[in-house]
Design a protein around this nucleic acid. Structure first.
Lengths: 229, 229
DNA sequence: AACGCTACTGCCGGAAATTGGCAGTGGCAT
DNA sequence: ATGCCACTGCCAATTTCCGGCAGTAGCGTT
């Protein structure tokens, strides 16, 4: 195994463990001495990986993904740039920032003669027309989805009937004029959809819901007839 | 310079030249022997780069970009996935396909435990509401923009007045309900905007326009007050 | 047919990078 | 005070990398 491959392997091993792992264990799994492991960690850090090491504990990789060298066609890069711009324009603050950061990283490594072209890429995203912005809420929802946490919401449906419910959010759909949360509703014991602009209050309950999101998502997709994207 | 860096450098050099370059020249630019160059080319090919080599001619890189190892945060990957999905949903056939391909490539290299999560990512893009689809035209426009080629179009404006013009397309803006081409209009000798759904006919003139797109784009941006994205 | 140009491969000795072991420092918790 | 562990510098052994050489093969020109 070449060194480059081993570095990638190290990232993946670190990613598998969620808790700190000692360097000795990592070196054993890689079939390499502890000394080399320290060097590998240093190299990865130099490449931008956020590997945290604490004496007495071990190493832990801050959640993230290391992509190995990838080859993209011109169209593919253009698609990534356009997509990131759309997210930067339309998604909530955190995600929009992440989109800009991802874009910056990609553009930074392009050869200089192409950097300008990509930066000045001719595919633009227009502003949203009348999309009500509830950035902080969307961020809360996204976090809850990822953590499989319950949410308490005050909702006002299309007929202006107000309710309070505990929901298990599983997905967030972006439409032209609104965003919709798909969730399992504890009150109704069924899947329900909630337009984010009709959510009047939202409270993150630091409480995990009892089924796996992937499973719920699959059931919901089947019910709604939504194909995998 | 480490070998990994040199491989990236080779890609960038190949990208600079648009015509075939001999291995000898490449090796000279890299400050390395011809023998090593052959090895480097072989390595890059094994990594998926499409470098074409023909005896008597030289090497040529099929247009595309090699991204070096990159580190993305969870949010950044989520933004890339969501953005690609939007492009796959909303852009024209070629670009949509490119978005799907880019996504496939990214997902393919994620560690397996995360692949499913990314594939089943909870951020979805709803279908467009009443967007008139003119896929083949959009592709033509995109190609013309990239090549800085003129286009002959038959246009019907908001008042149903029909005209034919030669335009120099410089950008394509995606709005919720329509796509708009920004262009220099030869007839009017000024910048004009054309909604793609009002373009009745389009013909690609294999003729380069006389000013650089980057410059035109900058002027147009200044005129319209559109900030760099 | 001969020649020039170039991609491509195998082999070999020398150069350079990688590796493992060792010794030592320092932080932290028990 | 002890144990655990991250981290660094040094050095010799190992592995990989590199350049040069010789040789094969495809293609177009003369």
């Amino acid at each position: 195994m070449s060194r480059a491959e081993r570095l990638l392997e190290l990232i993946q091993i670190l990613r598998r463990y969620r808790r700190p792992v000692s360097g000795e264990k990592l070196s054993a799994e890689l079939g390499v001495s502890i000394r080399s492991l320290y060097r590998d960690v240093a190299t990865l850090r130099a490449q931008g990986a956020t590997i945290e090491g604490e004496p007495g504990l071990g190493y832990m990789l801050r959640p993230g993904f290391m992509l190995p060298p990838l080859m993209f066609s011109e169209d593919e890069i253009e698609a990534l740039v356009l997509g990131s711009r759309w997210v930067a324009e339309r998604a909530d603050g955190h995600l929009a920032l992440a989109a800009r950061n991802a874009l910056t990283k990609i553009v930074a490594v392009l050869p200089s003669d192409l950097r300008d072209e990509a930066a000045a890429s001719s595919l633009l995203v227009g502003p949203s027309e009348n999309l009500a912005r509830k950035d902080q809420d969307i961020t809360t929802i996204r976090k809850a989805i990822r953590a499989e946490h319950k949410l308490l919401i005050a909702y006002e449906d299309a007929k202006a009937v107000a309710t309070q419910r505990v929901i298990w959010p599983i997905a967030l759909a972006f439409f032209d004029h609104c965003r919709v949360v798909a969730a399992w509703c504890e009150t109704r014991r069924d899947f329900r959809h909630f337009r984010t602009d009709r959510i009047k209050m939202i409270e993150a309950l630091e409480l995990r819901y009892t089924r796996r999101r992937a499973v719920l998502l699959k059931e919901w997709r089947a019910l709604e007839g939504i194909p995998e994207q």
